[in-house]
């Protein structure tokens, strides 16, 4: 029997893999696509909850739509940042950026 837990565990797994990627990647580009993976896992959660818990109303599904919009905006801005970062300092490795160093 396919249950909600299947989807939730899968989403958790995808989320944690993405988290690992965000924490360890040295490339800004890869961090951005890892963030996409995180959002994707959340979307999967929402869609699964929508289908199982409140199938009459498409509230969860509409949230997925909103998240997709936000993700598209985020990826657009993030990639623009990568381009301008690449142009101004030709730094690609993110861990060499330490302007926040105290």
């Amino acid at each position: 029997m396919l249950t909600l837990n299947h989807f939730l565990v899968l989403a958790a797994l995808l989320f944690c893999i993405g988290l690992f990627g965000v924490l360890t990647s040295r490339s800004a580009l890869r961090i951005i696509i890892c963030v996409e993976l995180l959002l994707n896992a959340v979307n999967l959660n929402l869609a699964a909850f929508a289908a199982y818990v409140a199938p009459q109303e498409a509230v969860g599904t509409s949230f997925v739509i909103f998240l997709m919009v936000i993700a598209a905006a985020e990826v657009g801005l993030g990639l623009a940042l990568v381009i301008s970062l690449n142009r101004t300092s030709s730094i690609e490795a993110i861990d060499t950026l330490n302007e926040l160093r105290g």
């Binding site: 988290l19 965000v22 924490l23 861990d95 330490n98 926040l100 160093r101 105290g102």
Partner: peptide, 14 residues
């Protein structure tokens, strides 16, 4: 802990 590296901060946050 004060590396200036955002990823380290994120690590601690998680």
């Amino acid at each position: 802990t004060q590396t200036g590296n955002v990823q380290t901060y994120l690590l601690l946050l998680v």
